[in-house]
Simulated assay, not measured.
Amino acid sequence: MTANKNVITADEIAECLGVSKSSAYKIMHTLNKELKAKGFYTVAGKLSRRYFEEKFYGVQSAEEGE
Rank of each mutant, 00 (worst) to 15 (best):
T2V: 14
T42P: 00
M1C: 01
S20W: 03
V19G: 01
K55F: 11
S22I: 11
L47C: 01
E53Y: 09
R49G: 07
I8L: 01
E64D: 13
E53R: 06
S61P: 08
A3L: 10
E64Q: 09
S61Q: 09
K38F: 02
G45M: 00
K55I: 12
R50Q: 11
Y25D: 07
T30L: 15
S48M: 11
E53F: 03
E12P: 08
K55A: 15
T2K: 14
K46N: 06
Y51F: 12
A44Q: 07
A14W: 03
I13E: 06
K33D: 13
A14Y: 05
V59M: 13
S22F: 10
A10N: 11
I8E: 02
V7I: 10
A10T: 09
G18S: 04
G45S: 02
Y51L: 06
V19F: 03
V7M: 04
L35D: 06
N32G: 09
K26A: 13
K21V: 12
S23M: 05
A24M: 00
A62K: 13
N32W: 06
E63N: 10
A44T: 06
S22Y: 14
K46C: 02
R50P: 01
L47V: 00
M1R: 02
K46M: 03
E66P: 00
K21G: 12
L35N: 12
K33S: 15
N4E: 06
K26F: 09
A62M: 14
D11R: 02
R50N: 05
Y57C: 02
A14Q: 03
A10V: 01
V59Q: 13
G45W: 05
G58Q: 08
K26G: 14
N6H: 04
E53W: 06
E12K: 11
E15W: 02
T9E: 01
E63L: 10
V59W: 14
A37E: 15
Y57A: 07
I27K: 11
R49K: 15
L17R: 01
A3T: 09
L35G: 11
Y25K: 08
S48E: 11
K46G: 03
A44H: 04
F56G: 01
A24W: 04
E54N: 14
I13Y: 04
K21N: 15
S22D: 10
G45D: 01
N6W: 07
E12H: 05
E15S: 12
L47Y: 01
F40C: 09
S61R: 10
F56W: 08
A24S: 04
Y57S: 07
G65H: 14
A14L: 05
E64W: 07
A62I: 13
I13H: 04
K55V: 15
T42S: 04
T2D: 15
N4K: 00
E53T: 06
K26L: 14
